[in-house]
Design a binder for these strands. Sequence first.
DNA 1: CCCCCCCC
Length: 482
Amino acid sequence: MTIQVQEEVFFPIRELSTYQGAKWTIKGRVTMRAPMRGFKKRDGNGDGKVFHVELLDAEGGEIRASFFNEAAEKFFDLMEVGKCFKLSRGSVRIANRQYNTCKHRYELVFDKMAQVDEVEDDQKIETVKYAIENLRSVKGKTLPCSVDICGVITAFEQPIAFESKGRNFVKRNLTIADDSAMSMIVTIWAERAQKEDTVFKGNPVVVMKGVMVKEWQGGRSGSLTEGGLMVMQPDIPEAKAVSAWWQSTGHAQEITFISQTNGLPGPRASGKTMDIMQMKQASEQMVTEQETFSIYCRLAAVQTRKRDEVQPLVYNACMELKDGMNGRTLPCNRRVDENGFCAVCDKKGKAGPRLNLRCRFEDASGNCWLTTFHPAAEKILALSAQEVQDIEQNQGREEEEEGEEEEAEAEAEEVGSCKLEGIENKLKETYYGEMLQIIVRAKPESYNGESRTGVSCIAASPAPVREHSRMMLKEIEDMLAK
DNA sequence: CCCCCCCC
């Protein structure tokens, strides 16, 4: 009798999806391990810990796997970079494109049920797998996305240290060009950014794995986070090709820069013109890519109360100047506390009123409530934040003066301890007034671990009547033609 | 279940 020892068959990482159920076992090499992180659960029910790895299998499939709590403690030390493992009993989820730099459509989550066993090193599994794309291809991708690129460093800035959300960062911008004759800015961080200038001098070839590409000021920019990989002068065919291109023609060629850095705040891409119903549909479908829409509509209402509470229209914002990109200085704009203290700047500096409204806009197709930021809000109300604040603060006094009017009495509905007629009457003057053109931004946000779309009004101006009329005439012509 | 790496 012959016993045939059959080699164990593993499920290909590439084919993992939410459809094939829970019966899979994969074998992969850890190519990256992120540090363990603790976190407070957003629902307030205690703390948790998590780390994640990237796994590569013999067929070249890669996926990110997160380990939570018990599984995190149990497997963190075991799962060293370079080692091979058999894994099963995890769950498969749609990858969150905001954070996940693996190209896989899904990601794995392991909890206390996880089955993870170290196995003998499998020579068929590579230690690193690049999926290099040239910048011409990067220019055409849906954003945000993650790519591997290989190019020549054509320029580099000095490292910049800055503070954001109470944390310190160091970044450095590189410009990378490749043989598609395009170039893009890629930001590198932390220790990688603080390497000596000599590392970046002399147009070296670099390969980067896991570059997050996002839209920035009308162009595209990359960011290589610490989980990504950066290798100078790599020994791969793409590097040889890029190097040959640079030496022969590239260095003297005109290169298309796909990261716009004109440094000016505008003109902002104002997006496709659509009606409110279409905007709602578009922002519901949209999950990963930031988009802006332009809408012709009118202001129908501003929220002044929320249940039984007054909804203030103005907040006190920190006006301390901060260094932005390209040497621009921008005010901090974060909310200060009742003593004027800014938690971001960590001091009591200059502060001033800023508008933050919930507006209902209306057109023939329907209406929508949108958070409306200061610059747009001032234009929509035709009032400055200071004027709104004055009305809000003086309305008690005005009421005393107008106390005998029956109309005021009928409307004198007390909300909390504050009366709102003053500002509400002022706002009513603007409802259904001038036709507006508003710019609506829909962008991916993460809330309670779920991706969702945040939609807000970021700009507003009086509608250009001629252009709007021409658009409507064209719609009529199209209807008649059918 | 996390998630920040800025600046619209």
